[in-house]
Amino acid sequence: MLDYLDNFWSIYSNLVLSLGTASLLALSIYLTLSCGMLAMANAAFMGIGAYTSSILTMNYGWPFPAAIAAGMAAPAVVAFLIGKPTLRLSGVYLAMATLAFGEVVRLIVIRAEGLTGGALGLNGIPQLTQWWHVLLAVVLVLAFLARLRRSKIGRAFEAIKEDETAAGLMGIDVNGHKMLAFALGAAIAGLAGVLNAHLTFFIGPQEFGFDRGVEILTMTILGGINSLFGPVLGGVIITLLPELLRSFKDYRAVANGLILVLIVLFLPKGLWNPAWMRKVLGLRKKGVTP
């Protein structure tokens, strides 16, 4: 049994740990969606965190904890800077603006070849991420978001999502809370980028483009934002799909788009929907097979 587990871990350890980083990414966009913002910059924030920590550990010998802190702080600061003009937008206009920002980040990474490796990316990143780093990060982020959701700030997020104008009339600082959600989401995405970069040895600008942004959104929409476990579930499913459907790996972006359309049409609140679960349990109590 122990030999089997050792063999399994040696083969699939990166995949298992990738489930954790995917969960962090899904939770990062959960924050902005919970505040009523369709922001698509999380892939870029992930890239900023990954490149920041990788450059610091490779070129300057920073210890891993300090690199993690820097990898979270850098995207949060950038989010604050770009949030001033972009968060005035809403809906599809905010999505377009944040997607454009992601493309700008990708082009900057390609142009700064001496620092980032350009289009070829950074290779030979020290493998510092351990399994307990990922587990601890997911647990801490879930605990923090659960506490935040029950707090005054979390209730303000919900009010802004339901009706931004009414929330403002109630005395809620709408712009301030939006900025907070945007910056916290960026920090969590940066954390995922740090852990992923020091797990896979290599990062490149193509990993943080439009396709990754759509993938992150798909994770959260698939799982649902009614509970913190929804984004985690979505992240696990979307990460495992390419492994389960290896023959369709060239159509991964198409599959993600199709999943997103189907979920919006048939399960608009995602797979983890407490109301749907209560309905199923109610049918079972009556002796009806759902």
Rank of each mutant, 00 (worst) to 15 (best):
F182W: 12
S13C: 04
M277G: 05
H177K: 14
L56W: 01
F101C: 07
Y93W: 14
L120K: 06
L267R: 12
K279C: 00
L233T: 15
G230R: 14
N123P: 01
A156I: 06
A76T: 10
G234D: 06
E162L: 12
A183C: 15
W132A: 02
G36R: 07
Y251W: 07
G47M: 07
L94M: 12
E113I: 13
V92T: 13
M1L: 13
A143V: 06
E113V: 14
H198F: 00
L260K: 13
A50H: 03
E207W: 09
R284D: 02
A167M: 04
L27F: 08
L184F: 14
A189N: 08
E103D: 14
L140N: 02
T289A: 11
I110G: 06
M37N: 14
D163F: 10
I68H: 06
G114S: 14
P63R: 01
T200W: 00
F157H: 06
F101T: 10
L233F: 13
N7W: 03
A22T: 01
L271E: 05
F157M: 13
L89I: 13
L191D: 00
T98V: 11
A39G: 10
A197V: 01
S34V: 07
M277S: 11
V141F: 03
L136G: 03
G209C: 09
N14F: 09
N123G: 07
R150E: 15
G121Q: 12
S151F: 08
S13Q: 15
G121I: 13
W132K: 06
Y4V: 08
G257Y: 00
S34L: 11
G124L: 02
R88I: 09
T218K: 00
K285I: 05
M58V: 04
Y93T: 09
Y30R: 05
L140C: 05
L148C: 08
A159I: 04
T239N: 04
L81V: 15
F208E: 04
M37Q: 15
G83A: 11
K84E: 09
I263E: 02
G230H: 12
K84L: 08
A22Q: 03
M46Q: 12
G287M: 05
A79Y: 08
Q130A: 14
G282K: 07
K249S: 13
I55Y: 02
A275P: 03
G71I: 01
V236K: 04
A22H: 03
N123K: 07
A73V: 15
L245Q: 05
A73F: 12
V139K: 01
R155Y: 12
L258F: 15
V77L: 15
P274N: 07
L184W: 11
F201C: 00
W132Q: 13
L241W: 02
P231L: 09
L260T: 10
A166V: 13
T21V: 06
A197N: 01
V214K: 05
T165A: 08
E164M: 08
S54L: 02
M179C: 09
K152E: 09
T116L: 10
L217M: 14
P231M: 09
R278N: 14
F101Y: 11
M40D: 02
F157P: 09
I172K: 11
G270T: 03
L180P: 02
L81H: 08
A66W: 01
F45T: 05
